[in-house]
């Protein structure tokens, strides 16, 4: 259960084509993350899959069956919204029970499933409270609880963690990953957080203006970005992109080198520059290096602490093995 196929699915809002025809297959049990800049159509794509928006063309198949015209409730998918979308006038228990009640499930089966979900998600202590009396993280868990009791074919998450603070986000990220490991249900997860995408996904789908730029595992995207957009989008801090004569030496339009693949020396190296701002994270140090004559600003990431002050001269040496080369149209040259 839970294989979703999009076949030339397109979406227009009036004149504006938000999603041009697009093909995508999501395998059973996969954790797929949609990433992309704001407004690129991630939510729209998710809502098309959920059935909350009608497609303008193409076909959506769930487990091989055409679901293009199926109403949302009949698709067997559960969605967790960014705003949680809990029912404020119902207790946590009633919230979680709502989909079961709508499905006309017998009381004792309902109770068993709710108690089970409450235990899994640590909701037992506040099961009789209203959503208004819960913290953000607890509300998020209720929203997930409401999704899992239905035992759906797939879960859809639309930026579920973006309203939480950093610490809670890390915790919930782990919880969702563990939930996926235990349930082994297909999950589609929308985010624009790099770290969430890299850590949670089996497969990342990078979108730009409704187009799929690349589909692959996190490490595939990191190691072999298919084009300049993916190269710049995946990885934090961003890859350094260098054009001009330095790139011509390597026989291409643009070369890319990740900040962590550059070594730093105070005395010798390939490129000379001047240290600008440095950010000390303890585990790593990020340098912004000016006046290299290559790009406006080169970012360098060095493990541990390095004693270099602003204004010091510095020499940078890229790891040639890990350099990326792109042609005139921005595509990768391997």
């Amino acid at each position: 259960m839970g294989r979703i196929t999009l076949d030339k699915v397109a979406k227009r809002f009036g004149e504006v084509e938000v999603i041009p025809p697009l093909d995508l297959t999501i395998e059973e049990g996969e954790f797929v993350v949609f990433v992309g800049p704001s407004g690129c159509g991630k939510s729209t794509l998710l809502r098309l899959i959920a059935g909350l928006e009608d497609v303008s063309g193409g076909q959506i198949r769930i487990d091989g069956k055409d679901a293009t015209e199926t109403p949302p409730a009949k698709r067997g998918l559960a969605m967790v919204f960014q705003s949680y979308a809990l029912y404020p006038h119902m207790s946590v228990r009633k919230n979680i029970a709502f989909p079961l009640k709508m499905a006309g499930m017998p009381e004792d089966e309902q109770k068993r499933r709710i108690d089970n979900a409450a235990k899994v998600l640590n909701l037992t202590d506040y099961i009789d409270r209203r959503p208004g009396q819960l913290s953000g993280g607890q509300r998020q868990r209720v929203a997930i609880g409401r999704a899992i009791v239905r035992e759906p074919a797939a879960f859809l998450f639309d930026e579920p963690l973006s309203n939480l603070d950093a610490a809670l986000r890390v915790g919930m990220r782990l919880e969702i990953t563990e939930l996926h490991a235990r349930l082994k249900t297909t999950m589609i997860y929308v985010t624009h957080d790099q770290v969430e995408a890299m850590t949670m996904a089996d497969k990342i789908v990078v979108l730009r203006a409704g187009h799929i730029e690349q589909v692959g595992s996190p490490l595939e995207l990191y190691r072999t970005p298919r084009n300049l957009f993916v190269a710049g989008f995946i990885g934090s801090p961003k890859m350094n992109l260098i054009e001009g004569s330095e790139a011509s030496k390597h026989g291409c339009k643009t070369i890319g080198i990740r900040p962590e693949h550059i070594s730093v020396s105070a005395t010798e190296g390939m490129w000379k520059g001047r240290v600008g701002v440095s950010e000390h994270l303890g585990s790593d140090t990020f340098f912004y290096v000016h006046d290299t004559g290559l790009a406006d600003d080169m970012t360098v990431r060095v493990p541990g602490e390095v004693e270099l002050k602003a204004g010091d001269d510095v020499y940078l040496t890229p790891d040639m093995e890990k350099m990326h080369r792109f042609d005139d149209s921005g595509l990768r040259l391997s």
Binding site: G51, L86, Y87, F98, P99, M102
Partner: peptide, 15 residues
């Protein structure tokens, strides 16, 4: 009335 709430109810199977 929050439209996401109505959509959530719709997905939960409420006609």
């Amino acid at each position: 009335l929050d439209s996401e709430r109505m959509e959530a109810a719709e997905m939960d199977g409420a006609g």
